[in-house]
Amino acid sequence: MHIAEGVLSPGVLAVGYALTAAGTTLGLRRLDYDRLMTTGILAAAFFVGSLVHVPIGFSSAHLILNGLLGVLLGWAAFPAILAALTLQALLFQFGGLVVLGVNTCSMGLSGVAAGWFFRWMSRVWPTPAGRRTAAFLGGALGVAGAALLTALALTCSEQGFATAAALLFLAHVPVMLAEGCITMFTVEFLRRVRPEMLPDKDKEANHA
């Protein structure tokens, strides 16, 4: 999912920075000091979790977990993803200073959207099957959105990258399914073990 440096055009980079700045500001405003530790440690868990390799067929892929983070944190997922990606750039040089805006924006926006979708769907379909579907689709939507935004950034930078962008998106389809399954099982696990970690509205639906 990380675009290398030097690939994107100045316009796309600027839009990425602007959206990241807006999302981070909004996320930080919603984040008070009492939740800062939890967010920081969940960002660290996101970092570690994204190094986990999941076998898919003959190959394996690493998880992205932005959907799960969006489900757990809402808008606060944005600054958490920014912090984790900055750390990844520093420690592993995945991504970097210049594409940090675009990378954060593609993963953050889709993560927040996945969180919204999860909450909306568990409200309208509050049965166990509905909640499982919501978690699966939330996880898959996180990856799908991130892949789509990355492909869009590549295509908008240079028409010549359109084929590469399409291939990149197609390569992420199995990852979407895997990530959906993992998110579904993880949310199910959290609901059984520590339901207070899941968003409030979901808990209300749980009690109803």
Partner: peptide
């Protein structure tokens, strides 16, 4: 997913 969930629960408690 269970291992990941456990990691998240422990992180939450640690936080």
């Amino acid at each position: 997913a269970s291992l990941l969930g456990l990691l998240l629960v422990r992180s939450h408690e640690r936080a």
